[in-house]
């Protein structure tokens, strides 16, 4: 009896997990391969390069964000526009050429489903972006660079994510 209820609980969890994850912009690709944990260091290396680009590209600058939202500079639009064009060409090449991962697995890209969260949540995030001058990526880079106050912003952002998880069923989607 106890094992049964445990089993059904775990099934339920899995279902919620799938439903929740399909709504979310995160990795849905379930790799069949299991790698030793230290394989994750390759993501650390990519992250380090990315963090350097964030600072040197001045994307972490509060001033640059003000300038962008006041439409007084091309800089940020140039950065984001170039990134999208390079990403677009890369994704098209991956799709057309059927490229595989370094482990030989086919690369799978998932479509994003529309829900009202992209509008309401998007506006809320935009307001936060304008005031803090940071999106989640630059927050981590700012902390590394030495901006102590970004630690408070990050903790609060984690809190905001937690509150969203708590209220998720009550929010319109």
């Amino acid at each position: 009896m106890e094992t049964n209820s445990k089993k059904s609980a775990s099934v339920e969890n899995n279902n919620t997990d799938f439903e929740v994850r399909s709504l979310d912009a995160q990795c849905l690709n379930e790799s069949e391969l299991v790698h030793p944990w230290w394989h994750n260091f390759k993501y650390l290396v990519v992250g380090i390069i990315f963090g350097i680009v964030f600072i040197k590209g001045e994307i972490v600058s509060w001033f640059r964000i003000q300038e962008m939202f006041r439409f007084e500079s091309f800089h940020m639009y140039g950065v984001i526009g170039t990134a999208v064009i390079v990403g677009l060409i890369s994704v098209q090449l991956i799709k057309r050429l059927g490229l595989k991962t370094i482990y030989g697995e086919p690369i799978i890209l998932h479509d994003k489903k529309f829900n009202k969260g992209q509008i309401i949540g998007g506006l809320i995030f935009g307001l936060g972006w304008g005031i803090t001058g940071a999106c989640p990526g630059p927050l981590f880079a700012q902390i590394g660079y030495g901006f102590v106050t970004a630690i408070i912003t990050l903790i609060s952002a984690i809190g905001g994510t937690w509150v969203y998880g708590l209220l998720r069923d009550k929010l319109p989607h």
Binding site: D24, V91, L109, N115, L127, G137, T149, T153, S156, Y164
Partner: peptide
């Protein structure tokens, strides 16, 4: 600037299902 601003970043990005990287760069690329 830190507490309210940070909260809006965390709450908003998760509600929207992604941030500048997940939506603006990865999503638009696809």
């Amino acid at each position: 600037f830190f507490v309210v601003g940070g909260f809006m970043i965390g709450f908003g990005t998760r509600y929207a299902g992604g941030c500048t990287s997940g939506h603006a760069i990865m999503g638009l690329s696809n």
